[in-house]
Design a protein around this nucleic acid. Structure first.
Lengths: 167, 167
DNA sequence: CTGACTGCAAACCCTTTGCAGACCG
DNA sequence: CGGTCTGCAAAGGGTTTGCAGTCAG
């Protein structure tokens, strides 16, 4: 997962923007940029941290947070999820949609010309301005399904008061 | 924001399901049920807590959390957002879509027959099973727009390293 | 060289859990 | 009355911040 035209162009964009904004290109930032630019998943800070740690063992989680928000402030990545708690960062700024696993949180992009042009009811504009629109598909990913099959019972609505925690 | 046919029917459903599951209908639970059933927003635990506190000043935030997850475990509410951190609960189980304000987090439902039947690319199934599909529209709500107008500069990509935190 | 940046550690949420007393059924 | 449920308080996990030393430019 090192290079590809798209990833390289993202990386170049990050560096150019950082330079333009007058922020320093430290080793830590360069590695974090690379990691974010090359990730297909939408990693949270912890994931980026673990990945960067391999090449830069002394990097700290704080720096990863600071750098991710730096990219966000520069408009180079978008965020998924709610405003607080475990935010995930999305390096893909093109129109696209998301598949999310409700078990493990895996998130993948997909595109669809048909969905890109969907019409939003006029009534929505009474809520406020519309900036972005995307489809979110939820389900259980292949990996989790395999684990369920391996383990005991597989799925669905509980009735007692156990087994929660999987949004 | 007290009664309406739909809200009353939800409330009745919650009570019936709770009774069927053999859980006790305490004052706290009844108030929390009512609050969740009647909210148009998709409240997080804190919001439900504040609302319930008005009628039941001694209620604790823990109980709100426990009761919300109880409703979730009974299949009576869905959750929005990622699996950890500030989860929001959605009392509307019908197919619908969401408008979310990126400033304040306001979330509103909307429906659209057209969007309900959108076709998801086959490729998505390679990620895993598909359980739900909905559209998420993001923007800035009327209230926040008004505040911005009242204050100084209104919107968009920052360039320094300030002004973050608004996913 | 010098200001910006990093790592460390402590501070801060929000959420969950353990426990003893209170209440529903 | 008995088991469930609540409120309290403390623990837990993720994120942010203050500070002094370090490094890019």
């Amino acid at each position: 997962m090192t290079d590809s035209p798209e990833i390289l162009s993202r990386l170049a964009r990050y560096q150019a923007a950082a330079k333009a904004a007058g922020v320093k290109l430290t080793h830590q930032r360069l590695e974090i940029f690379r990691e974010v630019a090359s990730s297909l998943e939408h990693p949270d800070a912890e994931s980026v941290f673990r990945a960067v740690q391999i090449r830069l063992p002394t990097v700290s989680l704080d720096t990863v947070y600071r750098t991710l928000w730096l990219l966000h402030d520069l408009g180079l990545v978008a965020t998924l999820g709610p405003r607080r708690g475990s935010v995930r960062f999305d390096a893909n700024l093109e129109p696209h949609h998301h598949y999310v696993c409700t078990r493990c949180g895996l998130a993948r992009d997909f595109t669809s010309a048909e969905l890109d042009v969907m019409r939003i009811p006029d009534a929505v504009q009474t809520f406020g301005s519309i900036v972005t629109t995307h489809v979110e598909v939820r389900g259980v990913c292949g990996g989790c399904a395999a684990k369920s099959a391996a383990a005991g019972q597989p799925d669905l609505p509980p009735s007692g008061q156990e087994a929660r925690r999987e949004t």
